[in-house]
Design a protein around this nucleic acid. Sequence first.
DNA 1: GTAAAATCATTGAGTAATCAAGTATATGTC
DNA 2: GACATATACTTGATTACTCAATGATTTTAC
Lengths: 143, 143
Amino acid sequence: MSVINPSLKTLINLAKVQAVMARRFDRLNVHGIGFTEFVILYLLQQSADGKARRIDLADKIGITASGITRMLLPMEKIGLVTREANERDARVSYVVLTPAGKQLFTDAEKTANALALEIIPAKESKDITSLTNILAKLGGNIT
Amino acid sequence: MSVINPSLKTLINLAKVQAVMARRFDRLNVHGIGFTEFVILYLLQQSADGKARRIDLADKIGITASGITRMLLPMEKIGLVTREANERDARVSYVVLTPAGKQLFTDAEKTANALALEIIPAKESKDITSLTNILAKLGGNIT
DNA sequence: GTAAAATCATTGAGTAATCAAGTATATGTC
DNA sequence: GACATATACTTGATTACTCAATGATTTTAC
């Protein structure tokens, strides 16, 4: 009957856990933004100058260049981010966090932190550490 | 600046790793089916009688009842699964694996196994075990 | 045994992504 | 300095979901 290997089973469970988690997050509708939008704001906020290239955001988040373009459109429209040219390379357009975006992140972050703790309680710190280490090996390098 | 907690960071990395993995899987287009379709075939094939209720599939996979209805439509159309009524409960409609579906799974499973091993090499068995255990705590109960 | 609540599945409308192709610019090679 | 290749981003068409609402049936409570 079933012969799929432990690696594949792990990937299947990873997908399931992620799907349930993301839906729960999106359902909460943390201050009007979804999970991916929250992550974008986080990355921008966390960068030294509050800006990043589109492609770098996409790579960090794990979506395509096309995906980031489409995610950012409504975020620009409601004023969470703006765009800025790169003087040295005209292909690049930076994504810049606006004060409104920063404020929204600050608010959303509280809710997001609380929800994350419901999903993975802080007392499971051994699990969190070991999960973080394994995910890092698999390409999850967001700090 | 950033104050998001380790649990939240872990969830963000989980999402990223899963996104990259799923895209890689879907891109391979394993015998014409995507990741979720593969998982559906796996669960059916693995069940004792080759059938399952829609809602049970949805719960195991981590998608909604609506989502499973929509995933199964094209799979029915190309003959990988059929539907069957439950005599005792007229609300239920079973998803039944066809011989064609079983055959496709058997073929796809080889490719899927190989890809999974590229992503998480079998030699990382300690990581696989510990990842499986943690994911199980978080609701990843597919065996 | 009837009314209220719960469960299973589907549908309409919308969203967040994908890929493939295209545009614009930059970089490397000879 | 021209030509091929690579990189950054966008767009059209499509896919794989979501939620909210609905229909149908079953279960529970009185």
